[in-house]
Design a binder for these strands. Sequence first.
RNA 1: GGGGUUGUAGCUCAACUGGACAGAGCGACGGUUUCCUAAACCGUAGGUUCCGGGUUCGAUUCCCGGCAGCCCCA
Length: 566
Amino acid sequence: MDLDNILQKAFSQAFGGEDFSWVRVVPATDARFGDYQCNDALKYAKKLGMNPRQAASSVAEALKGEAAFEKVEVAGPGFLNITVGEKWLEGRLAEMDGDANMAVAQSGAGRKVVIDYSSPNAAKQMHIGHIRSTVIGNALDRIFRALGYEVVADNHLGDWGTQFGILIKGYRECLTDEERENLTVAALEKCYVLSAAKAKDEDGVWKDACRAELVKLQQGDAENLALWKRFIEISIGEFERMYAKLGVKFDTYRGESYYNPMMPGVVERLVATGLAKESEGALVVDLSDEKLGVAIVRKSDGGYNYTTSDLACVESRVGEYSPERIIYVTDDRQQLHFRQFFSIAAKMGYSGVKLVHVPFGLMSFKGKAISTREGNLIRLDDLLSEAKRRALAIVEARDGTDGSDPASRERLAEQIGYGAVKYADLSHDPATAIDFDWDKALALEGNSGPYLQYAYARVCSLMEKAGASAGGGSGYSVATPAEKRLALHLLEFPGAVSRAAEAYKPSVLADYLFQLAQLYSSFYQNSPILKSESPVRERRLALCALFARVLGRGLELLGIEAPRHI
RNA sequence: GGGGUUGUAGCUCAACUGGACAGAGCGACGGUUUCCUAAACCGUAGGUUCCGGGUUCGAUUCCCGGCAGCCCCA
């Protein structure tokens, strides 16, 4: 039985039948105290004004004769220190081993979430500023799926707006025939920059022309619409080239344009329900009583903005999927926007869906915002190439260039390099702002992606060498302290996955995996496995096999590839 | 001016949401390869958790008041 359940039962035995589902058992903070601890007798005693030590003793008393435990002690002000029995531990390992989900509770079964992430602007190349939303969002996507949720991963592209007038004009006037023929995102970026610069000319002729192109597009002019579609297709093609490298896959690409036709209806409803009011020619929703200021839903020039578009988007998603949650992964500059729009959505009656903003700290470069103007815009493609290059240099320095074929070396370098980039981001709490640094983003040692990959490759190699004898079957047993530490930590995997989802922090899982790999590396270094005699060898191999599965699965949930040979 | 967010070892970050002596990585110093992959392992040094109050048996965590950085709104 689950440790939490055992304690919960003991609580209700000790104090009567109320609801103790909040009672939790956590790993011991220090191995000297035992394997696990429960601090909730203290919490309960405080609530009721009881003597905490006595409360803890009552629980300990109720736990007497509990087969799972070898020892239960009351310590300090009322901690319950628990040492589990070998049988229990071995039983749990076998249980995890036998479960296709690695004992991860399927708490999301029958539930649906939409995760909205990455969301770059069309006609521009992705840069390092896009890593965070993409990588964090994708990890959440994978983690929620692992918990049994049905996930719709949606890429809310910036594919509509004034920039398309500038682009169309630029496309016609600033590109060569050749560039137009073999159109690339780089060319689009170039013609946008040229066209935008000309739009700033004194006479305003160019600017007017851009606006005219935009109006034509908005009115459905066939030629401009076809151009726009082509720009979007090329953009998505380029994005998907990046996503393929990062192991990211979307279910839908619904850009702003998709919701554009729905916006007048949203505004109508806002007006009809009295939520939106005129103010200086614009339509606004007053949220000042919630300290959220006012949100503009239609500008004085008749244009809509993000609040309106996001409301339409919620309406559309609720209608299509009826999700229990919609999760938005964007940088933290947009917090006010999301609070405003969540508040309006609630007022409009979308209370059935939980709207969640997962804000992350903006990535900067040497303390400065990443922007074209600062000239520090590092393209994602370049970052990934550099990551690969560095990893390849290390692989070749170690193994030389004779032993393996270049293609597989390059593939390995990609797995390592991209893994390093992803892990560098995922291992931080999303809330922390990251100042981009080549060496940190591409760290290959210590708390890094490659450290985890290396541990995985070593255990895989070990299993291979062990050959047929590795095939468990004989069950688990745990004898030495190092084995027990590793075993206990392996059992924490489901908890780490759940906590990562609850907190919307892949970093919780990353941190867990790093600790696990550290425990394994230490175990591996200090405990002979293949060289051990019969019972010890099998015992340790069984733990290694489980470790390999847990680490492999964990890396998969972070979206980091785990090669079997490094 | 209002709001948000961050402040922890020289640097980059953790700390399972209030628990026991605040932990890792990098960097520094020292050690471990005829031995299962040294991208590893073991050890040493390094802390007034921004400051001041408060609540509590117990605070990095919660509350109040400051200070500093970043962001958003006006």
